[in-house]
Amino acid sequence: MIEIKNIVKTYKTGDIEFNALNGVSFTINDGEFVAIMGPSGSGKSTLMHILGALDSPTGGTYFLDGKDVSTLSDDQLADIRKDKIGFVFQSFNLLPRTTVLRNVMLPLIYEGVASEEREKRAKEALASAGLDESHFTHLSNQLSGGQIQRVAIARALVNNPTLILADEPTGNLDTKTGEIVLETFRKLNKELGRTVVLITHEQDVAEHADRVLFIRDGLLIEDKKKIHKHI
């Protein structure tokens, strides 16, 4: 469960202070599928960085599974990312010239999982992300955009995270491939009960989620829960 209260993030450039977030509060329960939406410059990326434990807020509190994340050191944040968060990036960020399987196993290396166990979990994650087994030994640069993003999703899944955080996951994909990727997220949420948070600036991408949080000028301006069209 994610609970954030009054999160403020201030950036300082010389003497000029800029508030990217001006006190945002919300709660996301386990198993939700949430989209965070907003135009560029709204502070949604900053919010994503804080939710993903990539950055610490200037003010406010952030509880992830009951643990206060807002005051941790760099190394402690790394542990949070390792154990509780799976990232899917717009630009995929797979290791080049490396097999699909090794890319997916990468987070488990830092967790110190034994190598047979690693391979087993990576194959399960790839299957959940809907990648065909014939691609497992391909190099990451031999795949199509949609396949690459599914490898990235599998990598985000493999450490069994509390939260899957996707930053514009369809931004570099065509509409049709984007739909397939978004369907994958939906499946993970419905069938495996994963908590998914999507960050996007596109309305039709946000439509896929059960709940949409609108951010503008560093403030939460709307929290819209809805019944999904597929149900």
């Binding site: 542990d79 830092y110 967790e111």
Partner: peptide
């Protein structure tokens, strides 16, 4: 550098 960023994002510590 991007690879280093990725590794850190998925839980690598500085000493790793």
């Amino acid at each position: 550098t991007r690879e280093i960023g990725l590794r850190k994002a998925i839980g690598a510590k500085r000493r790793d």
